[in-house]
Design a protein around this nucleic acid. Structure first.
Lengths: 153, 153
DNA sequence: CTAAGATGGTCAACGTGGTTGTCCAAAACG
DNA sequence: CGTTTTGGACAACCACGTTGACCATCTTAG
């Protein structure tokens, strides 16, 4: 049985999904039930300094239109706001609202908590090794947000 | 900077994606360019014994309709065939064609090869530990195929 | 044995997400 | 200046998953 090689991607994904689901379950409990797994990465990509739709698309590896649509949703939910750039009338600066910043901070905290749970189960040293090994193996590749289209047909 | 906790899910996903992309790049090179990341898991779930659409949906954590649609695509591509069950006229048995079985076997081989590359980079012991730790942490949770809907809004 | 319920499959409608193509206004550059 | 590039938005399109409904068939209870 060569299921050895198959175990690895499976477990990587299950681990990923458990962490993401864990964060969003807690966020939902704290008043943010509308947030989807995708949104966490968008928040992260926007950051505290804000960006533009085009730049966001670049960071996430999707088209500017896709990034724009996602921002539309986040804006409707009140996590993001667009302002015009006084220096450049073409650009619209996208910034997190207070509510958005709160989520970003909370997400980081919850991720840390979940990481601590992992550390408690396998030991902090093993977890550090695991992280280090993943970085070594995967290199500098960035996160791509086009998961739906990538995964599906 | 609490990016520690955020590093973990990111790297898990990047690793997952690199493995999946690696397999499908190679499969594409070998005459299966139409296959999508999703399909590998479907093949695995169908297995050498075959199943039905409903059962497939159960295994993958999606509705029977979604499973049926995916099978439609795979059938059109010639990787799967449906036959009627002589014991039960309601059921349609889904089995991999020869071409489908080939892909399943090749996928396993390529996963093993990619795993070997990882082992070469971080050492076989560290890789085994990594796998073991992931299993310990993630438990018995199954793979869910509803990634597009799960991830997106 | 028949009637009621459960099960397998398919069709249709809907919502979401991403993509390409097109267009326009504002900047940058020659 | 005029031309090219850039940021943004609109539209059409396709893929995937979901729920709801419907039908045929098997199972089971009265």
């Amino acid at each position: 049985m060569s299921s050895d090689g198959f175990l690895l991607p499976l477990r990587l994904f299950v681990g990923f999904r458990q962490l993401i689901d864990g964060v969003h379950a807690e966020l939902a409990r704290e008043g943010h039930p509308e947030l989807r797994p995708l949104h966490g990465f968008v928040f992260q990509a926007i950051g505290l300094d804000g960006t533009t739709a085009v730049e966001l698309g670049r960071r996430l590896g999707v088209s500017k239109q896709a990034a724009g649509k996602t921002l539309d949703g986040l804006e409707r939910l009140g996590y993001v706001e667009r302002t015009t750039d006084p220096q450049d009338a073409r650009r619209k600066l996208v910034k997190l609202t207070d509510r958005g910043v709160q989520v970003l901070i909370r997400s980081a905290q919850i991720f840390d908590e979940l990481r601590a749970e992992w550390a408690a189960r396998i030991g902090p040293d093993r977890l550090s090794e695991l992280e280090q090994d993943l970085v070594t193996v995967t290199g500098a590749e960035a996160f791509r947000l086009d998961v739906p289209g990538w995964f599906g047909s």
